[in-house]
Design a binder for these strands. Structure first.
Length: 232
DNA sequence: GTCCAGGGTTCGT
DNA sequence: ACGAACCATGGA
């Protein structure tokens, strides 16, 4: 993965600090940098993005370990591996039959596009549109890939994002995906200065922090005991 | 045994 | 444009 070099603290000169930034700052103070996405290469990010669909990350790690130790976490090898074998190898991640097909759809796209390097030249809206065409790639998976594999400034909306922001009254929680994504990007982008890489760094860290809060405090039923956001 | 996890597709209304 | 069933493993 590409590290986020710039410390993603937005400039909040003028006016009152927006709630979205106060939440971000509270999370960053409480948890520190999350160093997302936990992967060594963009391809590993992409594979992980499919494998983690509605699945605990712990199980994804086992599948990725299997792929690595078999030397299959490279584009040509992964794309040529028979679907039956691929499904067997990623079994711990669950839904292994559909996920094998989804991985294949992605690696075929990568091969037909001339590899990850060529795709770097494509503008974000077009790249996002191409990703959404791929079978098994929905909005959240596409945006995870755009942000964490291609370093594009998109906000990844997931269940934790909805749960946490709605619990604090910022949203109702049942808004359409695109609406939430656009709102978050429009609210946060003006606070990130002019550089795109700063927006990338903020979106990267913010999503990672939301997931960490969600996993540790913000499950569906129980209410957050000792939630870091309560003391602000 | 039941519920949930870093979703998406398909098929009903 | 929504709602529900479906996919499947492993941990709590």
């Amino acid at each position: 993965m590409v590290p986020n070099q710039q410390h993603p603290v937005p400039c909040t000169t003028g006016r009152e600090t927006p709630a979205l930034i106060k939440i971000y700052q509270a999370l960053y103070r409480a948890f520190g940098p999350r160093h997302w996405w936990p992967a060594e290469t963009p391809l590993e990010v992409i594979v992980g993005a499919i494998l983690t669909q509605n699945t605990a990350w712990k199980n994804v790690e086992k599948a990725i370990t299997n792929l690595k130790s078999a030397g299959l976490l490279e584009l040509p090898q992964l794309n040529q591996l028979p679907l039956r074998k691929l499904a067997t190898i990623i079994k711990p991640a669950g839904y292994y039959n559909i996920k094998a097909k989804r991985l294949r759809a992605l690696t075929e796209w990568l091969e037909n596009s001339g590899g990850l390097e060529k795709l770097t030249a494509i503008p974000t809206p077009e790249l996002r549109a191409q990703l959404l065409q791929i079978h098994g790639v929905g909005p959240e998976t596409a945006d995870s890939i755009l942000l964490y594999a291609f370093n594009r400034p998109v906000f990844v909306v997931d269940a934790y994002t909805r749960r946490i922001f709605s619990r604090y009254g910022l949203i109702s929680g049942d808004e359409p995906y695109e609406q939430l994504k656009n709102w978050l990007e429009q609210e946060l982008t003006p606070l990130t200065g002019k550089s795109i890489s700063q927006a990338v760094a903020l979106f990267n860290e913010y999503h990672a922090l939301l997931v960490h809060l969600g996993k540790t405090h913000c499950r569906p039923q129980p209410i957050c005991p000792g939630c870091p956001l309560e003391s602000d």
